[in-house]
Design a protein around this nucleic acid. Structure first.
Lengths: 205, 205
DNA sequence: TTAAAAACTGAATTGTAATTCATTAATTGA
DNA sequence: TCAATTAATGAATTACAATTCAGTTTTTAA
C-alpha cells in the first residue's frame, strides 16, 4: 500500500505539530491578533520554518479549519447514512456533534467565530470551500428531516427552516457552554435540546 | 430645557455621519479589514478628522455597536415591560426584533460577528459593556419565560435554556436571511419560529 | 474688515508584524 | 570521513495602515 519514508512521516508530524499550535493560539487570540511568531514559539520551530509548511498565515488558518471540518463531516455523514428512523438518526448526530465539540473546544472557538466571517466566504478559495462544507451539513440534516416528514415522524414544516432552527439552538448551547465560567458536560444538554426541538416549550392544555 | 448651539448641532451631525459611514464599511469588511482611510472617504472627511470625534478605530467601532445595542435594548425593554400575558409579550418582542434587524441590516452584520468575538469581551472596557448588554437581553427574556412558567403558559423547563434556544433559533434565521441571495421579508419567519419554539417539530401521534 | 480661534486636511511618521533569505545545522550517500 | 543536499533559523526586509501634526481653510467676533 503506502510506503512512507521516515522523511515523509517526519514532515507530516511537524505539519501536525504546527497545526496543533496554531489551533491553540488562534482559539485564544483570533485570526488577526494571533502572531506567526507566537505560533512558531508554541510549536517550537523558528518563524521561517512555518513557511516551509504553509505559504501564508491565511493558508495555515484555513487549512486548519478545513481539515477539522472535514473530520466532523465524515463522522456526521457516516452516522446520518446509517439505516435507522430519521428521528433516531437526528438524536445520534446531536450526541455525536456535542461530543466532538467537547473534545475539540479550541477548534470550536475558532469555528464559531468563523461562521460569521462573511468577508471571507467570498474572497478566498479555501474560504469558499469551507463555507460550502458548513452549508453541506445543513443540507444533510434537512434531507433527513424531509425523510422524517414523509414517514410521519415530523410535522410538514419546511425542512430547511427546521434544520436552521435546530442548528441555531445547538450553536447557542455550544456558545453558552464555551463562555460559561462553570464547567459542565455539554452532552448533558442533549435531552433539553431535543425536548424543545421536538415538543416545544408551550404547556399543553 | 436644552439650548444646543449650531456648533453643537453640527458636531453631532458630523459625528452621526461618521458613525453611519463606519457602519457601512465595517459591515462589509469587518473590523480588521476596514481601513480608517476608507471610512473617512465614505464619510467625506479627511482621515485626521475622524480623530476629532473618536480617539481610535476601536473607539469608533465599539461606540457604534454600543449605541445601537442601547437602542434595541430600549425598544425591547419597553415592550417586555408592558402588561400582557408572557406568551403574547414574547411574540411581540420577536416581531419587534426581526423588524429592527430588517431595518438595520448593516449593523446586524457587525453585531452577529461581534457576538462571537471572545477576545474582546474581556479585554476592552467598552467591549465588556457591550457584552453585558447582550447578556442582559437573554436575562430579560428568561424572566418573562419564568413568569410564563408560573402562569402555566410554558412547560417547567429551565428558563435560561429556553431563552438560549429561542435566541439561537432567531439568530440562525437572521443569519440565513443575511446571506440569502434571494431577498425575503425576515418578518415572514415569525410564525415558523414561534411554531417550532412553542410546539416543536415532532408529529403528534 | 480682519486677526484670532476652531475645524479640517492628508502627507509624513510610526509601530507592527508577515514574509523573506543569508546563514547555520543536520542529514545523506559516496 | 566528507562534500553535497536538505532543513531550520531568526534577524532583516517589506508592506501596511493607524495615528499624528504642520499647514490650510473656515468660522467667529470685535
Amino acid at each position: 500500500m503506502e510506503k512512507v519514508s521516515r522523511k515523509e512521516r517526519e514532515y507530516l508530524t511537524h505539519r501536525k505539530e504546527i497545526l496543533k499550535a496554531a489551533e491553540k493560539v488562534f482559539a485564544v487570540k483570533g485570526f488577526f491578533q494571533a502572531k506567526m511568531d507566537e505560533i512558531a514559539k508554541e510549536a517550537e520551530f523558528g518563524t521561517g520554518t512555518l513557511y516551509r509548511f504553509f505559504k501564508s498565515k491565511e493558508d495555515l488558518y484555513f487549512t486548519l479549519i478545513d481539515e477539522k471540518v472535514q473530520e466532523i463531516n465524515r463522522l456526521v455523514q457516516e452516522e446520518l447514512s446509517k439505516k435507522a428512523p430519521p428521528l433516531e438518526r437526528i438524536k445520534r448526530v446531536l450526541t455525536l456533534e456535542l461530543d466532538f465539540v467537547e473534545k475539540n473546544r479550541d477548534f470550536f472557538k475558532i469555528y464559531i467565530s468563523e461562521r460569521s466571517r462573511f468577508e471571507w466566504t467570498v474572497k478566498d478559495d479555501l474560504g469558499k470551500g469551507i463555507h460550502q462544507k458548513m452549508v453541506a451539513y445543513i443540507d444533510l440534516l434537512s434531507k433527513v428531516l424531509k425523510e422524517g416528514i414523509r414517514k410521519g415522524e415530523f410535522k410538514p414544516l419546511d425542512p430547511m427552516d427546521m434544520a436552521h432552527a435546530l442548528v441555531g439552538m445547538v450553536n447557542s448551547f455550544i456558545f453558552e457552554w464555551m463562555i460559561s465560567p462553570v464547567p459542565y458536560p455539554l452532552i448533558s444538554k442533549v435531552d433539553t435540546l431535543l425536548e424543545i426541538f421536538l415538543k416545544g416549550t408551550q404547556k399543553r392544555r
